[in-house]
Nucleic acid binder design. Sequence first.
RNA 1: GGCCUGUUGGAGAAGCGGCUUAACUCAUAUCCCUUUCAAGGAUACAUUCAUGGGUUCGAAUCCCGUACAGGUCACCA
Length: 550
Amino acid sequence: MATNEDLANLLFPEVTETIADLEKRFPERNLPEGAQVTRFAPSPTGFLHTGSLFTAFIARTVAKQSGGVYFFRLEDTDTKRTIAGSADDLIHQLSQFGIVADEGYFPDGDKGVYGPYQQSKRASIYKVVIKELVRQGKAYPDFMTADELAALRKFQEDNKILPGYYGPYARDRRLTVDEAIEKIKAGTPWVIRYRSMGDHDKKIKFTDRIRGTIEIADNDVDIVILKGDGLPTYHFAHVVDDHFMRTTIVTRGEEWIPSTPIHLQLFRDLGWKAPKYAHLPVIMKLDHGNKRKLSKRKDPEAAVSYLLKIGYPPKAILVYLMSIANSNFEEWTFQNKSYDYTQFPFSFKKMSLDGALFDESKLNFFAKEVLAGIPTSVLAPEVMDWAKENDAVLSSKINQDPAYFTKILGIERDRPNPRKDYAKYSDIEPATRFFYDEDFAKIKANPLPFNPKYEPSFLKAFFADAAEKMAYGTTESTWWDSVKSIAAAHGFAIANKDYKANPSAYQGSVSDAAELIRIALTGAKDSPNLHEVIEILGKDHVQQRLRSAI
RNA sequence: GGCCUGUUGGAGAAGCGGCUUAACUCAUAUCCCUUUCAAGGAUACAUUCAUGGGUUCGAAUCCCGUACAGGUCACCA
C-alpha cells in the first residue's frame, strides 16, 4: 500500500528542499522593537487604481513611521489576466508619489534578500510547502473537471445548500492514496486542495487593527492551493509569501475579510505565526444616490493616471488620501501649519470603517492649498515637466519664453497669502491665455465686454490717455495713483463713496475705470492683480492693447 | 440566499451613558473687506444621530428586531 510520502514524491519529484531549508534561507528580520514590515502586493492586471494607491500609501506610511520595511510584491499568478507592462507602469506611477519600496520587485530586477518578489517566479518555493503538506496528508490532489465542479455547484444551489467543495461534497478528499496515484499515472489532470479541518459551525475570532475583533465562521472548504498551471492561488501564496518575507502587518482591502479564516487556518496548521491584519475601507463613489466602489471602467478618477494627467500635484492627492484615512489629519495640518503628511502620526484606530466617497471638491481644496504653498521657483519646473508630457499647447508656450511664463505663474504667489486659483496644472493654461498675443487676438475676435453705457469715443479717449500717462515700472501704489488721476480727469469718482453719494455727477467710480482697463488688457472682467499683469505684459504691450481696445 | 462589515448634514467626520443647544473641515448661501477675481473675515446650513422597540433618572452613545448599503461565497486576486 502506497503512502502519502509516495504520493508527494510522485506529484513533486523535482522538489528536494524542505520547509526547514526555506526557514534558513529567509530568516527572521533583525528589526528594532515595534518596527513593522508591510507590503503592497498588486496584480499586474491594469492601471493603478486610486484605491490601490491608498493601500500602498498606508502600507508605506506604517512601515516608515515604525522604522520598518515596506516592500513591493507582484502577484502575477493569474496569467490570463496579466497585462504586459502594467507592473512597470504601477511602479512608475507609485514613484511619482514618492512611494518607492525598500525592497521588492523592480522593473530592472529585484532588490532585497527575501525574493523573488514575483509570485510566478516562486513556484518552487510554494511546491516545497505543498509537498510537505501532501506528505502529511494535509493536502491532496483533486481530479474534478470544470464541468463536474459546475454541476456540483448547480446541485448545491438548487437544493439551497451552501456552495463549495467541502465535507461530503469534497469528492476526492476521500480518495485513497492508491486511487490517487493511479489517476495521476493515468495522466488525469489535477490540482492540489487543502484538507480543511475547520468546522463551519464554529466561529473563529481575530483582531483587525482597524475594526477590532471580528468573529466569523471557520472555513471548512477544501480550497485549491495549487492550480492546474502549477501556480498557487492567492490564499496560499499570501500565507507562504508573507511568512517567508516576514511581513508583520498585512494591509489589504476589506473585501478580504471573509477569506481571512482560510488564511488563519493555513498559518495555524503550518505552525507559523500569522501577521496582524488591517482591512482598509474601500473608496466609494456616489452613483445615482447609491454608494458603490470606484470603478475602473466607469469613473475616470479611479485611475491615478487620469488624476496625474489633468495635473493634480501628487502631494495634493496624498494629502487628500491622508485626510480620508485619518480625519484628524486636517486638524493636525492647522496646528502644524504643514501638509507634510510624513510627519503626521497615522493611526489605524482612527480610520473610518466604511468607505469614504471620493470627493473631488475636497481634493480641489487641498490641491489649491498645496499648490499655493509651493514657491514659484519650484513650481515652474514642475509645471514644465508636466506640460511636456500632458499639454502640448502649454508646453509650446512655455518654450517660447520660459522666463515670461515663470513670471505669469508667480503672480501673487510668493507671499504670505498666495493666490489659490489653480487646483491642477491643467487650470493654468486657460487662465493665462490673455498673456499671449495669439490667444488675445482670439479673445478680441468677439467684442470686449465693456459696459455699453460708455460711448466708443469716450473709451477711446480714456484709453489713449491711460496708455500715455499710466505709471510703468513703479510700485503698485504709485501706479494706482496715476490711474486714479487719469480716471478723475475723465470724470470718474476717485472714491467709491463719492460715486455712491452722487452717481449722476460721475462717469463711474474708480472701480469702473479699473474695470475698463482690465477688460482692455485681459479681455475679461476678472483677472489677477492688474498691476502685476501690467508689469508682466510690459509697457509696449499695454499701450498697444489700450490703444487698440476700441 | 448564507455569512461578514457598516449606517451621525450635500461630503470627510468628532463624539463612545450626563460638560452636545452634535466639534472641526470641505461644499453651498449671504454679508464684510476690496480696483475685479482668487484669497481673507463674519454668519447661516443635522431640534437630531437609518428605523421601531427596550434598558436607564438620563442614549447618537448600551441591548434586541427591522430596513438599507457595501463586501464575500472561483483552478481571480
